[in-house]
Design a protein around this nucleic acid. Structure first.
Length: 592
RNA sequence: GGCCCCGUAGCUCAGCUGGAUAGAGCAGCGGACUUCUAAUCCGCAGGUCGCAGGUUCGAAUCCUGCCGGGGUCACCA
């Protein structure tokens, strides 16, 4: 149970009573009323702005209304103080028992602590990565992958029916180039081709093993001479190689994602969508509503473009839906633009029942956001809800120095190489240590340091410390059961030290943090929360170790006290594990 | 030039959808190790929240205009 929700429902009850008694008018909107921890701990445990928000519609002075509400709050046994402060805040102090009871909630819920029904089972689609199947993932893709995946987990935790989806761009000119590249490598593998690879092909070495395998396995199936090639036809060949190449690239990408612990529910093929007539359907719909026309766009301003020429194109009236200009749907060769198929794709998602759609993109697609919003608005008649999360650049560093990356010089670092070097958990955690729209430095050395400076370590260490205590407890009291279920019976009233209560209060905020992060689509908040709660734990630890031995978690002479403290420690381990679960990071139980 | 993002302590960043006296870490200075792991902790110092207006009980947060940094700009995806 979220204690802040609990208090809010009490507050609502009080407000209803006041309305009943005629102090407040009937039917006030409580929408802006907050119940939250105050920023300043001195202001108490919980604060509400109710009086200030409702004063105006109630035609009362904020402080008068606050007094009336505060007076009602003192009627509850576990409210030790209800004080009016500042312009009309109501600050509550709650009895230790109120907080101690939260430990019981946590032990009962386990890592499901923080789960809620906020989403009420509504379907939401999270589309992320969606990298072109033309090569291995790079570090930037990794950020989108982690952010999307953690966001999906977060939404699932608060009760949404989440689908994790990858859009495979297997239809455009880039996969054609990939197909030609593979064909080149294939001939190379057969020893038929010499010379440099043409510039418009993908030079990466990752196609070589694919080609070699193909050459070995299907030597007879593919034309090994120019004559055969001519007989079969260029387009037939390209189609075969495209399919093989895309499959191979997607297998590689899936493998990289699996190394990050990411598994998608669905891969949607752009090509399949086009072949099924998805784009035609959308176009027909747009035509019916007079939302497309043939026109000529103005040249882009400010940027000199040598090859620009006026060209009549099929355009979508994006500017009717908030975009800056209308957007082309067809290329000059008559094929669909990426935008056209992407419109169809989002329409497809919507018709599959997703009212809420989230796209996680790289920052280089920032210029694309408005038109996609316009498209969704036009295609779903306002019924669809699109949120685009743009992930800014990841700057790969090595001991404070930027890692210079160049595809040509062969110093390009793939996501896979980074995962292999620092581990999946580190990659996932670090990718969530910034909000998505801020740049992120990823220092290969720093993320492996075992110091306060390294957030991954700091949080992992606090979890490991919890388990270290539990292990010692098992040695000290071999016959005792310290499982979560057994610890529910502990006398939690013994957890009375200020440092203990501070930690418990922070733990009690977890459900609120989860909901806030889920509503704002901001998974990074989880990482910051975990750092915060970990800090309180490390502080309590040291207090017991250095300042006041009576605060040690384990006391051989006092089993009752030890059980209470173990309930706290066990509860914290569960909260941290719950947070790391959302982030997709393994909680370690021992540091070496 | 248009659009999008960013601008908070010397550095790297939080700031809970508008709350009270703006918070952490690092770096600096001063402390705590016969330990439930000092791989940690405690204290001090550090600020015109880029600038100027506006909205209101109340602005780092919302709006407008500037300044600075980054990204992006038909026929790529």
């Amino acid at each position: 149970m979220d204690p802040f929700q609990l208090l809010k429902s009490r507050l609502t009850g009080i407000l209803d009573d006041l309305a009943e008694a005629g102090t407040l008018p009937q039917g006030l909107d409580y929408g802006r009323v907050n119940v939250e921890p105050p920023r300043e701990a001195e202001h108490g445990d919980v604060a509400t702005n109710a009086a200030m928000v409702l004063a105006k519609p109630a035609e009362m002075k904020p402080r008068d209304l606050a007094e009336a509400i505060a007076g009602k709050f003192t009627g509850f046994d576990d409210v030790t103080e209800a004080e009016v402060a500042g312009p009309g805040f109501i600050n509550l102090r709650l009895a230790p028992a109120f907080w101690q009871a939260r430990i019981g909630d946590i032990l009962a819920a386990g890592t499901a602590y923080g789960d809620s029904q906020l989403g009420a089972g509504r379907k939401v689609n999270v589309e992320y990565v969606s990298a072109n199947p033309t090569g291995p993932l790079h570090v930037g893709h990794g950020r989108g992958a982690v952010v999307g995946d953690a966001l999906a987990a977060l939404l699932a935790k608060v009760g949404f029916a989440v689908t994790r989806e990858y859009y495979v761009n297997d239809a455009g000119a880039q996969v054609e180039a990939l197909a030609r590249s593979l064909h080149f490598r294939y001939w190379e593998a057969l020893g038929l081709q010499v010379g440099e690879m043409p510039e418009d092909m993908y030079p990466g070495e990752y196609l070589i093993p694919v080609a070699e395998k193909l050459a070995e396995k299907d030597r007879s199936n593919w034309p090994a001479t120019p004559e055969k090639k001519r007989v079969l036809g260029e387009s037939f060949l390209l189609e075969q190689f495209r399919e093989i190449a895309v499959d191979a690239m997607m297998e590689m990408i899936r493998d990289d994602l699996a190394a990050l612990g990411i598994v998608f529910d669905r891969f949607s093929s752009e090509r399949a969508l086009v072949e099924a007539g998805g784009v035609d359907k959308v176009l027909a719909d747009l035509e019916d509503r007079d939302l497309v026309y043939t026109g000529t766009l103005d040249p882009p301003k400010g940027k000199e473009s040598d090859d620009w020429e006026p060209r009549p194109q099929l355009l979508f009236r994006a500017s009717d839906f908030g975009d800056d200009v209308d957007r082309p749907l067809k290329k000059s060769d008559g094929s669909w633009t990426y935008f056209a198929t992407d419109m169809a794709y989002h329409f497809d998602k919507h018709t599959r029942g997703y009212r809420d759609m989230i796209d996680v993109w790289g920052a280089d697609h920032g210029g694309y956001v408005k038109r996609m919003h316009a498209a969704v608005k036009a295609l779903t008649a306002g019924g669809g809800n699109l949120d685009v999360k743009l992930c800014q650049m990841v700057n790969l560093m090595d001991g404070g120095e930027p890692v210079k990356m160049s595809k040509r010089a062969g110093t390009f670092v793939t996501l896979r190489e980074v995962i292999d070097e620092v581990g999946k958990d580190v990659v996932r955690f670090i990718m969530l240590t910034r909000k998505n729209d801020a740049g992120l430095d990823f220092d290969l050395k720093k993320v492996l340091e075992q110091s306060r400076d390294n957030p991954v370590f700091y949080v992992q260490y606090s979890h490991a410390r919890c388990h270290s205590v539990l292990r010692h407890a098992a040695e000290m009291f071999p016959d005792e059961d310290f499982s979560p279920a057994a610890l529910t019976g502990a006398n939690l009233g013994l957890l009375a030290d200020e440092a203990e209560l501070d930690l418990i209060k922070s733990m009690a905020e977890w459900p609120r943090v989860v909901e806030g992060a889920a509503e704002a689509h901001e998974p990074h908040r989880i990482a910051y929360y975990l750092l915060d709660v970990s800090g309180l734990f490390h502080a309590l630890w040291t207090k017991g170790t250095r300042e006041d031995a009576s605060l040690r978690f384990l006391n051989e002479q006092d089993l009752g006290l030890t059980r209470a403290r173990l309930a706290l420690v066990r509860g914290l381990a569960l909260v941290i594990a719950s947070g790391l679960e959302v982030m997709g990071v393994t909680p370690v139980e021992e540091m070496r």
